[in-house]
Amino acid sequence: MKYNNINYIDKLDQLQTAFVYSTKLAEAIGVSRRTLLNWRQKPESISAEYRLDIDVLYCRHFLIPEWDDPKQSFEAVLLPDDMPHNKALFLPFLRRLSYGTIEIETDMAKADFDNIIDGKNMPKNMDRQTFLEGFNAFITHKQLWQKIVEHGEPMPITVDSIKTLHADFMRGIHDNAGFFSTKIRVMGRLEGVQTTEPEDIEEEMIRWVYKEAKAVTLDAIAKAHAYFILIHPFGDGNGRVGRALVMAQCLNARLMPPVFDGKNRAMYYAAMQHAMKHGRYAPLVRLFYEAAKLD
């Protein structure tokens, strides 16, 4: 993502032109005008949380309009023929995919994730929840890969299999692992988006499965993902389950799954919000194709 190569003072300067008044820019980021002035003097003082807020805002105002072209077309990104049984190719991919989905939602360091996967024991000074988040993510993605790719068994995507995915990610972390939420859920960084009412989740998920489960193009899978996250059926772990469903749908169709991580997280949030609030999917579709390219 090109916004990663722009320093934060330049991003703030460009955003200032969009908001005109520094008070409005500060309000959009969620800080005081004084904080903006301090950042300009000491950009290294901008915390990771606010760096992400600035990046998301930058994407919304400058990249989303550039990418919002419904006439754009992309070539399908197929799963490489030599990848399924080549550990030198697919194991690094699985690690990157698994850490990426955790990196988007938690502050887990890459070194901690590597220690979890390589050591298979809880590293010192790590709490049990952090360990399980990393371990469950890698094992769940690995099992999906083994079932669909190595054993040649497409994953049937049903309401029950989605609940099982959630249980796999959240086992030992939450008591409600594998069960739909009975409470109102908040979207976090996806502002202004209303999730499905708790009493309607089961019916809406049945509808999602009927309409979206058999998607076989990256365009359709991207739109299905936005729809799933909009439903937000679980109390926690919706992003992890939703991105695992993307992986399963792609592997079922022999497509290369997109990888979402810290490098494209801001655009992921911005494109998802654009799709949910405005019904315009072009930026999200483009992001899926960009994220599916092998480096």
Results as ranks from 00 to 15, higher is better:
residue 201 I to D: 01
residue 224 A to S: 15
residue 180 F to K: 00
residue 26 A to W: 00
residue 183 K to A: 03
residue 21 Y to A: 04
residue 108 M to G: 06
residue 181 S to I: 02
residue 60 R to G: 00
residue 139 I to G: 05
residue 138 F to Y: 15
residue 267 M to C: 13
residue 205 M to E: 07
residue 166 H to P: 13
residue 200 D to K: 09
residue 32 S to D: 08
residue 20 V to D: 09
residue 142 K to L: 12
residue 84 P to V: 04
residue 290 E to V: 11
residue 52 L to M: 13
residue 225 H to F: 14
residue 74 F to I: 07
residue 22 S to L: 02
residue 127 D to T: 12
residue 84 P to I: 10
residue 224 A to F: 03
residue 160 D to L: 14
residue 135 F to Y: 13
residue 115 N to P: 00
residue 115 N to H: 14
residue 28 A to Y: 02
residue 158 T to S: 13
residue 194 Q to N: 09
residue 211 K to A: 11
residue 172 G to A: 10
residue 263 K to F: 05
residue 132 L to M: 11
residue 233 P to H: 07
residue 75 E to Y: 01
residue 73 S to E: 15
residue 35 T to N: 09
residue 274 H to C: 10
residue 45 S to T: 08
residue 122 M to P: 02
residue 290 E to N: 12
residue 100 G to P: 06
residue 275 A to V: 11
residue 142 K to I: 01
residue 57 L to W: 02
residue 153 E to Q: 14
residue 111 A to D: 15
residue 68 D to C: 05
residue 112 D to W: 00
residue 200 D to Q: 11
residue 155 M to N: 05
residue 5 N to G: 06
residue 39 W to Q: 05
residue 286 R to K: 13
residue 111 A to V: 10
residue 96 R to G: 07
residue 258 P to G: 02
residue 96 R to D: 10
residue 74 F to Q: 08
residue 133 E to V: 09
residue 283 P to Y: 02
residue 202 E to Y: 12
residue 22 S to D: 08
residue 6 I to E: 09
residue 271 A to G: 03
residue 185 R to P: 04
residue 122 M to Q: 15
residue 109 A to T: 06
residue 32 S to E: 04
residue 127 D to E: 14
residue 38 N to R: 13
residue 178 G to H: 05
residue 204 E to R: 11
residue 141 H to N: 13
